[in-house]
Structures are given as structure tokens and as C-alpha cells.
Simulated scan of single mutants.
Amino acid sequence: MESGTIVFERTLSELEPLQSSSTLRYVLDDVKNGSKRYGVKITQSIRDCVYEARCGMLCTTKNQCYRLLRFLYENAVTPVHLEDIIQDICNQGLLEGLEQTNECE
């Protein structure tokens, strides 16, 4: 069972030999740990296997996290690429920009 809230779900088609059919889920990771920050989790189900990646405590509001999840969804980011994409976003200062351009909850 998913922890957090599934915000987006995408089904990828079988395109042999380039791509297996799979389902991607983009989840708002709001595990309660005493902080008021939100993270993201991506799961990918391929046949009987589930791959997962999580980056926690990225955003201070749910709205900011929803925007980040939408970016990941629209670009079909998979779990294997999540850490690198988040690292690039942070290195460019875009995460701070995301937080500054969103209204508070």
C-alpha cells in the first residue's frame, strides 16, 4: 500500500524493445516526522516488480510539492532518475524559486 497521497498516475505502453509496459505513481510523501516539510515518491510497477524512489523534506507546503510532482509527472521521470533530477533542480536553485513563487497553504 502506498504511504502518502497519489497525486498523478501514468501508464506507459509496451514498446518493445525500448520500453516495457508499466504504471508510474507520483506520490506526495507526507510521512509525519515532526517537521512540516513534504517530499516526493515515485513508484513504477513493471509486471510483478515494484521500483521505488523517495526524496523527503523538499518543500514547505503541499502546493509547492504538488508543483514539483506535476513537473516529474509531465516529464515521465522514473524512480531510477529521481535522485539525479532533484539534485539538478537543487543545484540550479530552482527548488528555492519554486518555494518563493507559491502562495502559502
Rank of each mutant, 00 (worst) to 15 (best):
E74H: 10
T23M: 03
R67A: 13
C59N: 00
L95T: 11
S22Y: 04
Y51I: 04
I86H: 00
L69V: 03
E9I: 06
R47I: 00
I42C: 07
Q19K: 02
M57F: 07
S22M: 02
I89N: 14
C90I: 05
T43P: 01
H81W: 09
Q100N: 14
Y73Q: 12
Q92N: 15
N102A: 14
V40W: 03
L68V: 04
R37L: 08
C59P: 08
S35V: 01
C65A: 11
G39F: 05
L82T: 04
E52Y: 01
R47G: 01
R67V: 09
N102F: 09
T78A: 03
L94A: 15
C90N: 13
L58W: 06
T101K: 15
C55G: 05
L72F: 04
L12G: 03
R54S: 07
L68Q: 11
L12K: 02
L58D: 09
S21L: 01
T23W: 05
Y38G: 08
L15H: 01
E83D: 15
T60I: 07
E96L: 14
C65I: 10
D48H: 01
M1C: 13
S45I: 03
E99R: 15
C104N: 15
E105F: 08
F8H: 08
Q87R: 14
D84R: 09
E74G: 15
S13Q: 06
I86S: 12
L28A: 13
E99G: 07
R37K: 14
G34L: 01
E99M: 13
I85Y: 08
G97M: 13
S20R: 08
K41D: 03
G34T: 02
S22K: 12
F71Y: 07
K36P: 07
L69G: 06
I89R: 14
R54M: 06
I6Y: 01
L95K: 13
Q64K: 12
G93H: 15
N102Q: 14
S22C: 02
I85M: 04
I46G: 01
G97I: 09
Y51Q: 11
I42N: 04
Y66P: 09
E9W: 06
I89S: 15
M57P: 09
E96K: 15
L95P: 04
C65G: 03
C55Q: 12
I85E: 13
L58G: 07
K32I: 03
T101S: 14
T23P: 04
I6N: 01
V77W: 05
S20M: 00
E2Y: 11
A53V: 03
